[in-house]
Nucleic acid binder design. Structure first.
Lengths: 153, 153
DNA sequence: GATCACGCACTATTTGAAGTTACATGAAAC
DNA sequence: GTTTCATGTAACTTCAAATAGTGCGTGATC
């Protein structure tokens, strides 16, 4: 089962933007993420609609931050991505009337729901500012790194 | 992102077997699960290797229980399936040397690990016997149902 | 020895994500 | 104003992973 790395990816993009002075184009972000500009636009659309970032057209355009990093949590970002399913396993639903299936699903759903709630809670405790601070700490700890992002893409 | 229903499915199969007197063939289970006999054999292979079920060839052959339902938990079944990933989201690993990526991954990995641990703990608390008891309770509560499995596949 | 059932390797199909192209819209530069 | 740059979207095209299916081998029962 393949894992979705959109959340991870979008956070990567956001940290990039946070470091930049002005707007960053989809093209530039795409290179950093080793993907296509259209993919970046697609993934950012939700964040734009949610008001976390802004996009500008034309010369000098691109993506800019539009929120207070202290106030936005990873949970908010997750929501803006469309709340993709967190769990890789789910219930069978092919025989809803089957009592065996009902018994199985009841047992699993409980555990699944609890794990999901825990995960969402944790995501809600981490702000973008904390992530950014962690990144800066790592950069400071790394010898011989200058003012760039420490990237080796 | 599509969800894996193997655990749910295999539990369904096990409850079926628990109700049956003698061996149940892959063919019969496949019909109940609306799938192919080979799929059943594949999914059961892990359980057989783990010693939870036994398979017999030839006339009157098929699958039989080989464990104490009181002693086997959903966690054990999960393990026997090869411990497929529980979470639908994962870390990006395309730029392992990137400090931004490291910061992001560190933040997410923590939360992911906790949720996974919680889920595994819950699965470890439920035995096959409990599942079976729940099924019987549901059947008793259903009016007009006889001794069959209450299936409407 | 004929039939039945599992075991396994191999092939085929499906499905969903990711990448690409194409074109429209809007903003700044010239 | 027209040229250039950048986003917004809608197709369309790969591409890879998961699932399903086929064929044949092995062993057990009738």
């Amino acid at each position: 089962m393949k894992r979705d790395s959109r959340l991870s990816g979008v956070l990567h993009v956001l940290l990039h933007m946070a470091e930049a002075d002005g707007p960053v184009t989809s093209e530039v972000l795409a290179v950093a993420m080793q993907t296509n500009a259209v993919v970046i636009r697609r993934i950012m659309a939700g964040l734009r609609d949610a008001g976390f970032v802004r996009s500008e057209k034309g010369h000098g355009g691109g993506w800019t931050f539009a929120c207070d990093p202290e106030a936005v949590t990873l949970r908010d970002i997750y929501d803006a991505l469309g709340k993709p399913s967190l769990l890789a396993m789910g219930n069978r639903t092919e025989a809803p009337g089957c009592l065996v299936e009902q018994a199985v699903n009841a047992a699993l759903s409980d555990a699944f729901a609890q794990a999901e709630a825990l995960l969402l809670g944790r995501l809600g405790e981490v702000t973008l500012a904390m992530l950014s601070a962690d990144f800066h700490a790592r950069m400071a700890a790394r010898p011989g790194t200058t003012q760039d992002h420490g990237h080796e893409h």
